[in-house]
Design a binder for these strands. Structure first.
Length: 170
DNA sequence: TGAGTGATCGTA
DNA sequence: ACGATCACTCAC
């Protein structure tokens, strides 16, 4: 029996709040886990940095589901990026996982590295992290001393590129 | 059907 | 600072 697991309610909140709340919590995938140390929040179509800016397509469909599933996509043809889908159905939002810390305290930095460490690939797209017994997040008290800055690699997003939607802990 | 473009990373 | 390498979007 799994206790202390984040529930559906958590994932229905807004992505920016959740990006902060997820810091310091443990993300478990099968036999691997990482303490989340860096995240970015992405909003809906109005957010020019979000994949949802093109509306619902085959690729972005997961973003339009209700929160509590994974959105996994490929960047630059070779790296997988893992996101938690947030918000109500048809209200796209997501939190990108950028870095984490292993049980041994090793830092896994970068979205591609993060996904690779946990063994996440395209087959994990749509994975339910609310009910799946092998893929879930442990609740933990809110992190302290949260740093914030601009999101990485979204320079094309005009004023949205400068929003302080990236969060990390030391 | 094909060109253009990345929510990256390792090496230099 | 650059190349690897390809899913995805959009224009035709």
């Amino acid at each position: 029996m799994i206790r202390n697991r984040l529930t559906k309610q958590f994932f229905l909140q807004d992505p920016i709040s959740c990006a902060k709340l997820l810091l310091g919590k443990k993300f478990i995938v099968n036999d691997k886990s990482l303490i989340i140390t860096e995240t970015e929040g992405y909003l809906g179509p109005e957010d020019l940095a979000s994949h949802a800016r093109f509306g619902k397509t085959t690729r972005t469909d997961p973003l339009f589901h209700a929160g509590g599933i994974l959105y996994v996509f490929v960047v630059y043809g070779l790296h997988y990026c893992t996101n938690f889908v947030m918000g109500e159905e048809n209200q796209p939002g997501a939190v990108l996982l950028r870095a984490g810390k292993t049980e041994e305290g090793i830092l896994v930095k970068g979205p591609g590295k993060f996904s690779a460490y946990l063994g996440i690939d395209k087959t994990y797209n749509y994975t339910d992290i609310v009910t799946n017994p092998n893929c879930y997040i442990f609740d933990a008290p809110p992190a302290k001393n949260i740093q914030k800055g601009e999101r990485i690699g979204v320079g094309y997003a005009k004023q949205w590129a400068h929003k302080l939607y990236r969060f990390w802990i030391i």
